[in-house]
């Protein structure tokens, strides 16, 4: 919890710095991307200390391409040394 608060505070400082930079671009899209990006980033950042769910990319990929990957893996497995 304590770590999460520190992370949040540091991120806010970082956001202030970055927002002042993005402001100079004078592009609404950039501002919104930064805002949304920071919300996602902050969720990720506090998910570590607070144990919030975050997709495990390798598992997601396993499930997506599983049907193709399975036969290749078993084929390769037969060649491996035991």
């Amino acid at each position: 919890m304590f770590i999460a608060i520190i992370v949040l505070l540091l991120s806010l400082i970082l956001f202030r710095f970055e927002y002042s930079q993005v402001k100079k671009l004078k592009s609404k899209k950039d501002k919104w991307t930064l805002l949304v990006g920071f919300v996602i980033g902050l969720y990720c950042a506090i998910s570590l200390p607070l144990d919030l769910p975050v997709p495990h990319m390798n598992r997601v990929m396993d499930q997506l391409v599983g049907p193709i990957a399975k036969p290749i893996a078993t084929m390769l497995q037969s060649f491996r040394i035991k």
Partner: peptide
């Protein structure tokens, strides 16, 4: 977007945490 740097800091957060949970 006008400048790619806008996305870098949020991406750094995401890469860090997704990297941790990658495997």
């Amino acid at each position: 977007l006008k400048n790619y740097k806008t996305t870098t800091i949020p991406l750094a957060y995401v890469i860090m945490v997704f990297g941790f949970f990658a495997s």
